[in-house]
Amino acid sequence: MVKIITVYGNMLLQAMGKTLLLALCGLFFACILGLIFGLMSVVKNRVCNIIAQIFVDVIRGVPMIVLAFFVYFGVPYLLNNMMGLNTPVMTALQAGTICLALNCGAYMSEIIRAGIESVDKGQMEAARSLGLSYFVSMKRIVLPQAIRTMIPSIINQFIITLKDTSILSVIGFPELVNTAKNVQAATFKSFQTWFIVGIMYLIVITILSRCAKVVERRLNRGR
């Protein structure tokens, strides 16, 4: 075990860095997608509601590994081979980010929708009755209150997304699991390799959830 750490430790740490980078990229766009589709599912507009519903249903109904293959191999094949376009090559990081953003975005939009719906309707009505527009009321009154109830679920979703990056090892992105596979192949020490990788995930995720607890407590103070 010591040998693996001394020889491959640096490589595994870098891979963890890649994992975090991928997770952050995915989460960033997931938040944007989640907010867009979450809002689209609460506005009073049938077309918006239906589009948001389809997005959530499709993404939730497809396993992420399938989504990853589809985005990384399927879409370029469609564009280049079937449609004859000459699109630039997509990197594994880009494809991985798209997958995570779509996948996590769908769950985020549900969290955001539920959070917004948990805010008493009277808050929006009071804001509107003062002459504020729908979006200003949303931004200043409803969303700040919704975020309080959403924070625990959002953090939970962050952790799930961080773990889901391991699925993207299948498209060859050198994140932690992908790298660990190589380490294991080189050393034949399966137990030690996967034990170390498990501990690495555990440490990062534990730190993350501790930070989350602090944020949550701070948000709830004075309430």
Binding site: A126, R140, I141
Partner: peptide, 15 residues
């Protein structure tokens, strides 16, 4: 609405 104030049964102060 800027010229028409409204007061609600459940107050609806911004929490």
């Amino acid at each position: 609405r800027e010229n028409v104030g409204m007061v609600f049964q459940h107050f609806n102060l911004f929490n």
